Simulated scan of single mutants.
Amino acid sequence: MRELFVEKDLTTLERYWAIPSIQHSPNLPKGTDGLRAAVPGLEGFEWNPERIFQDGDYVIALSRTSGWSPEGDAAIVDIFRFEEDA
């Protein structure tokens, strides 16, 4: 998340996001294409992780963001499932 949203390193999408990636944000299309299109244009965006929980192969990140949407600051939850390559 830091590499993608703070450093704007789009190569993280190939390294850490699986295909197909399920995007649950109503503001982005499914998959990684929405992130690939949105991240470079984020001006003044801030991502601040508040809590990160791990349970088995799931990681849940509660974060506060600003500069993502015209509605203002937001609290968001990202849920990731990690698995090793076979």
Rank of each mutant, 00 (worst) to 15 (best):
W68G: 01
G41I: 08
E71F: 03
E84L: 11
A86D: 11
E46A: 14
A37I: 00
W47C: 00
K30A: 08
R81I: 08
E50V: 15
Y58C: 11
T65K: 10
L13H: 03
D78C: 12
L35D: 03
I60P: 01
K30I: 06
A37S: 06
L42D: 04
F5I: 12
Y58G: 06
P29I: 06
E3I: 00
D57E: 11
Q23N: 13
W17M: 01
A86Q: 06
E7F: 00
E46M: 10
E43A: 09
R81W: 03
P20G: 07
S69I: 10
Y58D: 05
V77Y: 12
K8D: 05
G56Y: 09
F82D: 13
I19C: 03
F5V: 09
T12D: 02
I52K: 14
P26Y: 05
W47K: 02
Q54F: 08
L28F: 07
V77Q: 14
D55Y: 02
G56E: 04
Y58E: 08
E43Y: 05
S66G: 10
I79K: 09
R81E: 03
A75G: 07
E3V: 05
A38G: 08
L10C: 00
G41T: 11
E43F: 03
E83A: 14
E14F: 00
R2N: 03
H24M: 13
A86H: 03
L4N: 01
W68C: 02
V6C: 07
S66E: 13
E83Y: 07
L35F: 12
L13W: 05
V59T: 14
G44I: 10
E14R: 00
E7M: 00
V59W: 03
E14C: 00
D33Y: 01
A61V: 15
V77W: 11
T32D: 01
A37E: 10
E50H: 15
